[in-house]
Amino acid sequence: MNSESKKYGDTFHQANRQSFFSKKFLKDNILTGHFYLVVYLILGAFCFFNFSACRPNSGREEIIVAGSTSIQPFTDEWAELFMEKDAKVVINVQGGGSSAGIMAVKEKTADIGLSSRELKQDEKDLMEITVAYDGLAIIVHPSNSVNNLSIEQVRSIFAGEITNWKILNSTDKTITVVVREEGSGTRGAFQEMVMGQRRISKKAIVEDSNGVVREIVSRDENSIGFISLGLVNDRVKAIALEGVRPSEEAIVKGEYGLRRPFLFLVLEEPRGLLKEFIDFVLSDEIQSRLPQEGLIPVKKIPADTGFERREE
């Protein structure tokens, strides 16, 4: 009420001000009237241009890759190398997760899906190309005195039955278990290869990428987790399982059992640019670099040996 009467009281004052500004107002109003129209026309033209240039399968030089965050970093490197060779090509690599990658390929939002888990029954209509094998490393903080665990011990730790490092002849500290989230390929592989029918403890800390698990383990002296062997660095320590240290050699020989395939998924037999990129990844040039990155080249592992996955 108060302010209302105040407003009317100032009518004269305001009216004066308005006329004073009226020229400026006129200019403003031209802007407000047509500004959006102009902007929209520009945007419209722009969208149209983009549409014709960039929708899938219209002769563009772009490959969209999406999926597993475990494979993403490696694919990024491969893509960079590929793009160095052919500057016209753009390869967009993004995470999103194995399932999102699978779905993206099916729905044609991506050309290549990355999966670090094998396909489920209803996903089998996609074409799988194994581009590398990856070991799964059990990691602890570098200061941890534990160097070797049996599969049974690892199982008990992750099931929440062994909760103190003391039992494993280390310091008297509660174990912090760090795992990946439900649905992740890494967790799926760990569940099947190590846990079997046992559940991973509900009390475990859950993070959504290998990088985060590594980061947490590298900061917490009492923690234990599992990540891709390729991502192990000097800030964490990969421990031996049943006396075998995880290495390319041990995995190739079949002594270290925790491994899984890295899959490229495509809708149909790749052609053109897509084929070039996949061939490039499978070529000796890339495959011979894999061991440096902690991965195992496809050819080193005969297709039918190694770990058999249980049907879900």
Binding site: G97, S99, K120, E182, E207, D208
Partner: peptide, 13 residues
């Protein structure tokens, strides 16, 4: 939601 969305499929999603 944010943790598991990326990998979830089917009923999980």
């Amino acid at each position: 939601i944010a943790l598991e969305m990326a990998y979830a499929s089917g009923e999980h999603r």
